[in-house]
Simulated assay, not measured.
Amino acid sequence: MTSPATPSTAPHWLTFQLDGQAYAAPLAQVSEVIRMAEVTPVPGAAADLLGVRHLRGRVVPVLDGRRRLGLPPCDADSEGVRVVMLTHATHWIGLRVDAVGELLVPDAAVAAPPPGRAARTDDPVTGVLPWKGGFVALLDVRRLCRLPQTETA
């Protein structure tokens, strides 16, 4: 885990809800938030991949945030459901979330993930921050989307 940043140098995070829990992705890796639209299923894909969709000339995979994090399914037709478009290097990935929250600028040190999570190399939760009487789980976009450690040419 990285050393805690001071509030003036701390990155901004976009919060969103999944099964009543707050999660956040680095704002620098969020390209936009869009409404859920039709996706084309991909035969044989991972269970958390809803499918692919076209977005301004790109074919973008769309993950179900709940399934990816091992949470129970929900009604996909809910009014607040959105797709957070995430980027990492040259990759674009959509993440379906229950609702989009607000911009978070940490004013406290990031704590380690809950015990047991840190031991999993594929766990996308990199830390937690106290927030609104609870906590927000900070996500690593590369691990969340199961992208390679380094880019190949």
Results as ranks from 00 to 15, higher is better:
1 M>I: 08
2 T>A: 13
3 S>L: 12
4 P>C: 08
5 A>Y: 09
5 A>C: 04
6 T>N: 07
6 T>H: 13
7 P>Q: 14
7 P>D: 13
11 P>S: 13
13 W>T: 03
13 W>M: 06
15 T>S: 15
16 F>I: 06
17 Q>V: 10
17 Q>H: 11
18 L>S: 05
19 D>R: 13
21 Q>R: 15
23 Y>I: 02
24 A>M: 07
26 P>Q: 14
28 A>F: 01
29 Q>P: 03
30 V>R: 01
32 E>N: 05
33 V>Y: 06
33 V>N: 03
34 I>S: 09
35 R>E: 12
36 M>L: 15
36 M>Q: 11
36 M>H: 08
36 M>Y: 06
38 E>M: 05
38 E>R: 14
38 E>F: 05
39 V>I: 10
40 T>K: 12
43 P>W: 08
44 G>Q: 10
45 A>R: 10
45 A>M: 07
45 A>L: 06
48 D>G: 01
49 L>H: 05
49 L>P: 00
50 L>C: 09
51 G>E: 07
52 V>W: 02
54 H>I: 04
57 G>L: 04
60 V>Q: 05
62 V>T: 07
63 L>G: 01
63 L>P: 09
64 D>C: 12
64 D>F: 03
66 R>Q: 09
66 R>K: 10
67 R>G: 04
68 R>N: 02
74 C>A: 15
75 D>H: 04
75 D>Y: 04
77 D>A: 15
78 S>K: 11
78 S>Q: 15
78 S>L: 13
79 E>M: 07
79 E>C: 00
80 G>P: 03
82 R>I: 05
82 R>Q: 14
83 V>A: 03
89 A>Y: 04
91 H>P: 00
93 I>R: 07
94 G>C: 06
95 L>S: 00
96 R>S: 12
96 R>M: 12
97 V>W: 07
99 A>N: 08
99 A>C: 02
99 A>Y: 04
100 V>Y: 06
103 L>Q: 13
103 L>Y: 08
103 L>C: 14
105 V>Q: 15
105 V>M: 10
106 P>C: 06
108 A>Y: 01
109 A>Y: 03
109 A>M: 06
109 A>P: 07
112 A>Q: 09
112 A>I: 02
115 P>H: 12
116 G>L: 12
116 G>Y: 14
117 R>Q: 14
121 T>L: 14
122 D>F: 04
123 D>K: 08
124 P>W: 07
125 V>F: 05
127 G>Y: 07
128 V>Y: 09
130 P>K: 13
130 P>D: 15
131 W>D: 03
131 W>S: 02
132 K>Y: 05
133 G>K: 06
135 F>L: 11
137 A>E: 15
137 A>G: 02
137 A>P: 02
141 V>N: 03
142 R>F: 02
142 R>Q: 14
145 C>T: 02
145 C>H: 06
146 R>W: 00
147 L>F: 06
149 Q>H: 11
150 T>E: 15
151 E>D: 13
152 T>R: 14
